[in-house]
Nucleic acid binder design. Structure first.
Lengths: 145, 145
DNA sequence: TCCCATTAGTTGCATTCGCAACCAATGATC
DNA sequence: GATCATTGGTTGCGAATGCAACTAATGGGA
């Protein structure tokens, strides 16, 4: 039975939860998932290179490049070439970007909390624990190819 | 910090886990995610209408239509018009489809179990519990729009 | 019986995605 | 310090996705 298959339940649950948040940052603010992630990172830091940006968002270089391009065109971030390595970009958030981040973050966090608060404290603890363990186990298997 | 944001961790973990399985059914068998879901359902049942197929796979009608189309062209499933309602299709799995399902399922299940077996029994129980609670909470919030 | 609102499925289009090829800068080696 | 493998970023292209329009079948009233 597909409905009992763990990978299916994980994917469906994760997608359903995600959809609630996408409704906020995508439909209401026109931000894609990747843009939202970059903005999240840059809003909370002075500046960061494209390289670190990729590492810290689980996005590959193509995704970073394209999402950053969209954010640039919207005036939410800016970039300059760092002196040390001219292959990279050093990105930072504009005031406009920070303002939008704060607005979006408030609403996204509300939605997310609305879901989590419908769970018991014990269920939340269990989810937290299970998720952390799953991430480690997944990384471990993926590392061994 | 993005890395501590629950929605981010859920999405990243789920995607990483998923990728391990996609490597199997996509790269090695040329099946898309939607095709794999339909095949999973149809391999374990006599026949099912397009309508039920959608309900039981969390796919919308467009996804069902297109994935079914691909499976038909590959000869893995077949369909006929049910007498009761000629708007629908009644799908069923061909022997070739069942054979491929069994092969893929074995490998996918191995991968999935390889991950889960690296977790302690307690972590697995916690994950199971947390995931079920999260799904219910998510559905509950989504239902209230 | 004839509308017509509803439901199911398909198709078109614009956007996004993933992959591979490509270009630019770096740095190790000779 | 010239060569070239490596690393970082961008671009192109084919496939997939999401959304809305469209077609076909159903079913409930005037």
């Amino acid at each position: 039975m597909l409905q009992d298959f763990f990978p299916y339940r994980l994917a469906v649950t994760s997608a359903a939860f995600s959809r609630l948040l996408v409704d906020v940052y995508q439909r209401r603010f026109g931000l894609g998932r990747d843009e939202w992630r970059l903005l999240y990172l840059l809003a909370n830091v002075e500046a960061e290179t494209s390289l670190d940006l990729g590492r810290n968002t689980s996005l590959d270089k193509v995704q970073v490049s394209r999402a950053a391009d969209r954010l640039l065109r919207k005036g939410l971030i800016e970039r300059r070439t760092p002196e040390l390595d001219r292959r990279l970009w050093l990105y930072s958030c504009t005031p406009k970007g920070r303002a939008m981040f704060n607005e979006v973050h408030t609403l996204v966090d509300q939605r997310s909390e609305a879901v989590l608060q419908r769970m018991t404290r014990e269920d939340r603890t269990a989810l937290e624990r299970g998720l952390t363990a799953l991430r480690q186990a997944t990384e471990s298997v993926a590392a061994g190819l």
